[in-house]
Design a protein around this nucleic acid. Structure first.
Lengths: 148, 148
DNA sequence: ACGCTTACTTGACTCATTCCAGAAAAGCGT
DNA sequence: ACGCTTTTCTGGAATGAGTCAAGTAAGCGT
């Protein structure tokens, strides 16, 4: 478990590497998402406020957009949920989402070539295959069986 | 191209088979989605009003929910778009979405077993793998190249 | 045809997110 | 350290998809 300082330093490096100014809200957002991946804008805002004090909602949305634009964040929009963000970018990994508690877990792509080539592309020029697995996490499986 | 009457009869049968009451808005919604698949609630409402006259927005939402619940419709929520509906249910097909014009095209699953089994399920009990292909449709490819 | 039950209407309302605009603050190259 | 430029703040308002609630209308089994 890295310290907050390590996370802040790392976030700072990434911001500079992307040619962006290093500001407290930006670093805070990156640290918050390292601590809790797949958080929504509101959750990120609460994390950032917890460590930095007052930060406007506006600033949080601005930062999330700017960092997503710069490729430092990836935005995902699972069905039935608000937009969520993660710091893991650059690889085309996928997600498993629990229908019970909503938890989102990263899944490596495992290089499934078939997933990138549908049987009939109909002339489409594809650049991404987004895969979302739906099911029940270990926590929610027993609870669900009892209800059934 | 089936006639409206054929579509209405077919929709009526499906409603009865599902044990649902046959009402004008319900039949209208099913016919609308046969005519234009992957339409959002607003588009469905406009179609239905075009053929039935006044139908409340609420009724459209109620019908879409009820029919989705009953398994007569499938709801998809692509990132950056509102919820969309289609009448093709029962098979686990996927979608290709054009980043240019937003058009959605069905893609057969082609039985890609790997897509249903991630490398590390982390104890999840999965019931669905949702695949969305992103790219440019044939129409939007030239336009995009010119801009580049 | 009757009446129970389900569906539809109306209108107010929530929620995430965006936009607006001016002022204040802060980063960073020199 | 200075000053230009970008970012953030205040805070108010608007948007658009979707929901809630209570009354009215309509389907359908008898």
């Amino acid at each position: 478990m890295p310290t907050d300082e390590e996370l802040r330093d790392d976030a700072t490096s990434r911001l500079r590497a992307a040619g962006l100014r290093v500001t407290a809200p930006r670093v805070g957002v990156l640290v918050a998402l390292e601590r809790e991946s797949h958080a929504d804008a509101d959750t990120v805002a609460r994390h950032v406020r917890g460590s930095l004090g007052a930060v406007s909602t506006q600033a949080v949305y601005d930062v999330l957009h700017a960092l997503t634009e710069a490729g430092l964040l990836r935005r995902i929009e699972p069905a039935g949920s608000t937009a969520r963000y993660e710091t893991r970018v650059g690889d085309n990994h996928h997600h498993m989402i629990c229908r019970g508690c909503g938890v989102i877990v990263d899944v490596d792509c495992s290089g499934l070539a078939p997933c990138l080539a549908p049987a009939h592309p109909h002339g489409f020029l594809l650049d991404e295959a987004e895969v979302t697995f739906w099911g029940l996490c270990p926590e929610c499986q027993p609870a669900n069986e009892e209800n059934a």
